[in-house]
Design a protein around this nucleic acid. Structure first.
Lengths: 201, 201
DNA sequence: TTTACCATGTAAAATGTTACATGATTAG
DNA sequence: CTAATCATGTAACATTTTACATGGTAAA
């Protein structure tokens, strides 16, 4: 259902075509908690929202060419407002780096230098995100409302926290100074045995 | 595809039934970046992984009853190891709170006290998450490997950062001391006009 | 004129959830 | 005996991505 509100939200900023919506999401989506979106989602959903009376469509001349531009109807503005006023659900995180950390095994399965690569890549990408946010704050075209600026503050704080964590963690992996595993039921030893047994077959 | 690796990862900790896997994900999933999972995902995927030779199944007596327990084959251990060694993709965030902040409009559409409710609810839920993490670190049953402890450190840092951000933000909303909107193309004024026009119809 | 980008769309596949059916065991 | 929990499963639905088709416009 969230594609619906991404579309309504972006159209509330500015009347747009499907193509422009995609570009907007690509530019700001990751930062603003929208995720990604594809044409296969956008165009059918625009049709559906039009049919349901939340948006309407008109043809507009843009750089010497007729495009289909969508804008909110009264019903669309109302729908957006209602959604904004409803309590947001707690986010579900699906982070492959955290997944891999949580399934990482001592030396019998994996190596710390691979893990360090993972962390260094993550740091680079997060630094890029920070640059992108700063560009966005200082350029001469992007609108940032007072409230949207709060979410950008939030992201900068989270990204800086993440980078600090990586900077503390990599040396600990090099020096092998991690907190020892806690394993009251000896699952790690048992896992090693199970794995060895399979190797034999 | 990520359900596959959640199942392989959990089975690497301990041989389990579908039912036990669900409970494990419910207990730790949100924290460890796995997201949620349903029986409709688990049982068919276990069959598929068995058919593909990554896991095998045996019946085991557990609390006076025969259950279907799965464990990794050699091929399953290898598959998990390969996946762990591959660079993780950057996470896609889909956070309704951030979405709503980014689409929040000045008074003509929304009210700050609703926003404060949203933030207070988020803070409460994040405090609960912190409690849950602490319980998990100190109880006498959960295994936490040295590397998994890193991801728990990460999560605690992020949750604390979030709570601090909320604690700074709520007073700013009460006192109306937000950074003013940046709007070089006057989109906000134009949006107000577009909305009023629709109201008339 | 050809390459790159602008722009709209669809069919099929992938992925996952919801809601239900079914029955065993256990605790009160 | 009955409610709760344990346990396995499936069919229908919802959502979204992938891969493709199609053609216009602009710049080199």
């Amino acid at each position: 259902m969230s594609v619906k509100y991404i579309l309504l939200g972006i159209l509330s900023w500015n009347p747009s075509s499907g193509y422009e919506i995609k570009k907007e999401v690509e530019h700001k989506g990751r930062e603003l908690g929208w995720g990604k979106i594809s044409y296969g989602s956008i165009y059918p959903k625009l049709k559906e929202l039009e049919k349901d009376g939340f948006i309407y469509c008109y043809e507009a001349q843009e750089n010497g060419r007729l495009n289909k531009v969508y804008d909110l109807t009264k019903q669309g503005w109302d729908e957006l407002q209602i959604w904004l006023s409803e309590l947001p659900s707690y986010p579900v995180i699906r982070d492959e780096l955290l997944m891999k950390l949580s399934f990482w095994k001592p030396s019998f399965l994996t190596y710390n230098n691979q893990l360090i690569n993972h962390l260094e890549k993550r740091k680079e990408e997060s630094l890029q995100m920070l640059d992108h946010l700063k560009e966005w704050e200082t350029n001469e075209v992007s609108m940032i409302t007072d409230v949207a600026a709060l979410s950008m503050d939030y992201l900068k704080l989270q990204l800086n926290t993440e980078i600090e964590w990586i900077d503390q963690t990599i040396p600990r992996l090099h020096e092998n100074t991690l907190t020892p595993s806690k394993d009251p039921n000896n699952l790690l030893d048992k896992a090693l045995v199970r794995k060895e047994k399979m190797n034999g077959q």
